[in-house]
Computed example of a mutant assay.
Amino acid sequence: MKMTMDVECTPEEARRVMGLPDLTPIHDAYLEKMRKLVEDGITPDTMESMMRAWAPMGDTGMAMWRQLMDRMTGSMSKS
């Protein structure tokens, strides 16, 4: 026997039912930091330092990000 159940709920309700933590304060802090960076004028150095902080596996992760950005911008630069 196969049974299907559809549950209609908001993402907040689903998060609570599954017992997941509320990351709203972290998300808000991240957005505020990004907003400040944009207002202050984001530089390539700032962007690189953010990517280094986010990138898994250090330089390998950075190479992956660089490749992704090159593809998105159509750049054929090799570094």
Rank of each mutant, 00 (worst) to 15 (best):
D28T: 12
K2M: 06
D22Q: 09
M50Y: 01
M76N: 14
M57I: 04
L23S: 13
P25H: 13
S75M: 08
R71P: 05
K33M: 10
S75R: 07
L31P: 07
L37T: 05
E12N: 02
D6A: 07
E12Y: 01
S77Q: 11
Q67I: 02
T4R: 13
I42M: 03
M1Q: 10
R52A: 00
P21G: 10
P56I: 02
D6F: 15
T4D: 10
L23T: 14
M18G: 07
R16T: 15
A53D: 04
M51F: 01
M3A: 03
L37A: 06
S77G: 01
S49L: 03
P44W: 08
M64P: 04
W65H: 11
S49N: 05
V38R: 09
Q67K: 15
V38W: 04
E32C: 04
D6M: 14
M50G: 09
M76L: 15
L31Q: 13
H27Q: 09
I26K: 12
S77V: 11
T73K: 04
K33Q: 12
M5C: 09
G19D: 10
L20W: 11
T4W: 07
S49H: 03
R15V: 11
E39K: 07
G58T: 02
W65C: 02
D40M: 05
M51N: 03
S75E: 07
D22Y: 00
M64T: 06
E32I: 00
R52T: 00
E32N: 08
M57H: 09
M18R: 15
W65L: 06
P11M: 01
S49V: 05
